[in-house]
Design a protein around this nucleic acid. Structure first.
Lengths: 150, 150
DNA sequence: GGTGAAAAACATAGGGT
DNA sequence: ACCCTATGTTTTTCACC
């Protein structure tokens, strides 16, 4: 949880990751160096885990997004699936979930053929059965979180 | 699709959104101004849609993540659900999907009570039934996409 | 598309309150 | 924790190839 000024800073950077310290300082009413110090503390504390350009998948040929749910085939512990799957770079996210299935993956690929190949690799790597939900369109995504103070 | 140098630049910025033009220039072997120009073109073309700080949800009190699937209750066209739902800031992403359900939302809230309240708002706003899958842990998330040239 | 150089803006570290 | 100042870097623009 964040104190009010830190919340404002984090919110501003979540929205515009390249916002200058000078801008931030004006917005929150502190000096540039005070803001700089606060940002570094937010980074050290792990509140800010890094910065990223938001890339449009379509424009770089990743036109197919899907959610893939995993169900273990034998009763082996699914605890290390993430480690097994991490090398597959088409997997953008991996969530352990409560429900009939154990994990939900979000994947992005160039084509149905690439999806088929990826699913094969996932099944082979982790010994799971998969259920895939294809994304048709994405009205919005990656919206910055609401950051409330205190 | 991107030409080789643009692909390198986009990949570098996807990984570190605050990477300086000076650094980028060294990596790709061009002058600072050439790189600057290319980045601006990538931004204009919409390949780079912005920059964001990666915020750790846990650390700002958003300790509960879930996927919410929507099924329309009457046969009304679900085309404008996204517009209806956009004002709910706890919804981080909204995907239209192929499958039994029409949409998948990714939501982040502070508590089970907040999730309950949010689901009520979603149902009331969009006239849908919901199916919710709670995230237990997230081994990885927001990994930068693989950007291949050409 | 690309370069290089100059001006303006910014980041960063140090010392003081 | 914050402010101010000084210094080095980075961003940005522009004239030219």
């Amino acid at each position: 949880m964040l104190e009010e000024i830190d919340a404002k800073i984090a919110a501003a950077l979540a929205e515009d990751g390249r916002c200058s310290y000078t801008d931030l300082a004006e917005r929150v009413g502190l000096s540039v160096s005070a803001v700089h110090q606060r940002v570094r503390r937010l980074e050290q504390r792990g509140v800010i885990r890094g910065y990223a350009a938001r890339i449009d998948g379509e424009q770089i040929g990743l036109s197919l997004t899907a959610f893939v749910s995993l169900t273990p085939i034998d009763a082996a512990a699914p605890d290390d699936y993430p480690k097994l799957l991490a090398h597959l770079q088409q997997i953008e996210a991996c969530h352990s979930v409560a429900g009939v299935e154990s994990y939900i993956l979000k994947v992005r690929v160039t084509s149905p053929a690439a999806l088929e190949a990826l699913l094969g690799e996932i099944r082979a790597t982790a010994n799971v059965s998969t259920r895939t939900t294809v994304v048709l369109s994405t009205p919005f995504e990656d919206r910055p979180p609401v950051i409330h103070p205190s």
